[in-house]
Every structure is written in C-alpha cells, then in structure tokens.
C-alpha cells in the first residue's frame, strides 16, 4: 500500500523542502520505495536540495499534460536506487496543475508499488498547497518556534482536517505530525524563544521531532546533499529519529538541552 505524506507549513522559509528531502531520503534508507514530488510550480527547488538539478529533463506538469511518461520524468537518486524525484515545472501558469492531473500521477505511483510518496508543498494556502495536501494520508507540518510560523501552522492544521479528500469523504482523518525546526535550546533557556512545550500547548498537538538550528543545514543545501546524510550533524541525527518515529518506532527527543560553552569561550568569547 502506498502512503502519501505531505510536507507543509503555511509560512515560507521554515524548512519544508529541507524536510521533504531528508524525509524522503530517510525513508529510502529504511528500504522503502519512495518518490518525492515538488509541488511548487514556478519555483522549482527540491531538485537543488536533492542535488539532481542538472538531470531534470521532464517535470511534474509534463507528466500531467501527457508530454512525458512518469517513468521518463522520475529522476533516480544517485545515492539510493529506490528513491526518485519528480521536479516542479518552471512554468508561470499557475493552473498547470489540476486535481485530476495530480490524482492521475499519484494513481500511477500506487500502481508502480511505491511505499511512500512525499509531497513537498509550496508556501501559502493557495492552489498548489491545496493540491499537495488533498490526497495525503499523513501530514508533516513544519513549524519554527516563532509567532507567525506557529499561527500559520494552526491554520494549516485546520485545513488538513477539513479540505482534504479524507475529510471530504468522511474517512479516518489525516495523521498529523508536527515537526519543530530551527530550534535553539540556548535561546529557549534564555527565555528568548518559544519552547517545544509552548508550541505543543498552543497548537494542541505533540511534536514528532525537533530539529536543532544547525550550520550543517546550509552546508548540506550548498552541496545538494540532504542533511540527513550528514553523520556529523545534530540536525541530520534529529531527522533520522523523526523518520524512525514516522515509521512507528519510539525514540526519545534529543538535542533539547542548551550547549554549555567551555571556560575559555566564556571568558574570551566566541
């Protein structure tokens, strides 16, 4: 059975694409057959984060319009042979994607026996975001510990429980997973940043993972290597934990404690 996961947030720049890339890669590392689709029509980005930007020939819209087959458009990941990327189109036509078109592509992925389809949603709550979430079985709502991001994710949680196929057909609701990213335990301890508990309380849902703010995320996107593959970064390790939890494993949250600076650093700065 194919499970469809949407990675969404409402607000832009919170880490949706970073999360989609790492989630898809993590699921593939667990032996699953995975496709990750960029729904951000007009602003293709997932290909860069996955490091396959020079291999894009056909895209999502080409498949929807019958200009290419799904097989032609799926880009096989260089690192995992069971991982495939479907790039967004660069067209400026906002109506290039239709509900029927998206459904057709997803149905074909089901027939090809994919275990997971990860849908990387565009920011906002317009058509692209709506289509990315509409067919989902799971939703990963990416949120930063910051007021506008928290408010927007509450809005998204509302849409997930009313404007999706599962909601409209009265089926069991989408499984919602809240993922807190760009978390800085030192600033939380100083009272400058909302804590995990604060965010959980406001939104009334517990987190599936907490990704610490990390320099390695930028380094990973610079290199086109999903950060989950960076064995030396806390962010990568936190993504590994998150993927395991989504697959049903129980793991304690890590990296929530402030990093204490050494004596020399405290005296001389740094």
């Amino acid at each position: 059975m194919t499970e469809i996961i949407v990675v969404t947030s409402g607000k832009g720049g919170v880490g949706k694409t970073t999360t989609s890339a790492s989630l898809a890669t993590g699921l593939a590392m667990a032996g699953k057959k995975v496709a990750v689709i960029d729904f951000d029509v007009g602003l293709r980005n997932l290909d860069l984060i996955m490091g396959c930007e020079r291999r894009v020939v056909y895209d999502f819209v080409n498949v929807v319009h019958g200009e290419a087959t799904l097989k032609q458009a799926l880009i096989k990941d260089k690192r995992h042979e069971n991982l495939f990327v479907l790039a967004a189109s660069q067209t400026r036509d906002k109506d290039a994607l239709t509900q029927e078109g998206v459904e057709k592509v997803l149905d074909e992925l089901v027939k090809e026996n994919f275990d997971f389809v990860v849908c990387d949603s565009p920011a906002g709550i317009e058509k692209g975001a709506h289509l990315a979430m509409y067919f989902a079985d799971h939703a990963v709502v990416v949120v930063n510990p910051e007021v506008s991001s928290v408010r927007d994710s509450d809005r998204i949680l509302g849409l997930l429980s009313s404007k999706t196929r599962r909601a409209e057909k009265g089926e069991s609701p989408i499984k919602q997973h809240l993922l807190l990213t760009r978390y800085n335990p030192n600033r939380v301890e100083a009272g400058e940043m909302l804590s995990v508990k604060d965010v959980e309380e406001i939104l009334g849902i517990s987190v599936v993972g907490v990704i610490p703010e990390s320099e390695n995320v930028l380094a990973a996107s610079n290199a086109g290597v999903p950060v989950i593959l960076d064995d030396n970064s806390n962010a990568g390790a936190a993504y590994k934990d998150t993927v395991a939890r989504i697959l049903g494993e129980e793991r304690p949250l890590r990296f929530l404690e402030p990093v204490k600076k050494g004596f020399l650093k405290r005296v001389f700065g740094g």
């Binding site: 928290v150 509450d154 939380v188 400058e192 909302l194 406001i202 939104l203 005296v267």
Partner: peptide, 25 residues
C-alpha cells in the same frame, strides 16, 4: 566574552509570544 556584560541583554520575550499566540489562535 569579558566585555559582554556591558551590552544590554534582550528582554526574555518568549512569554509574550506565547500569550499573544494563545489569544489569536
């Protein structure tokens, strides 16, 4: 660092954020 105590520390603002969010949400 040594001179950092001269800088004004930011007021802890997470509490304000939480309260504002609680109301608007």
């Amino acid at each position: 660092g040594i001179l950092d105590f001269l800088k004004r520390k930011p007021e802890p603002s997470a509490g304000v954020a939480k309260e504002r969010l609680r109301i608007i949400v």
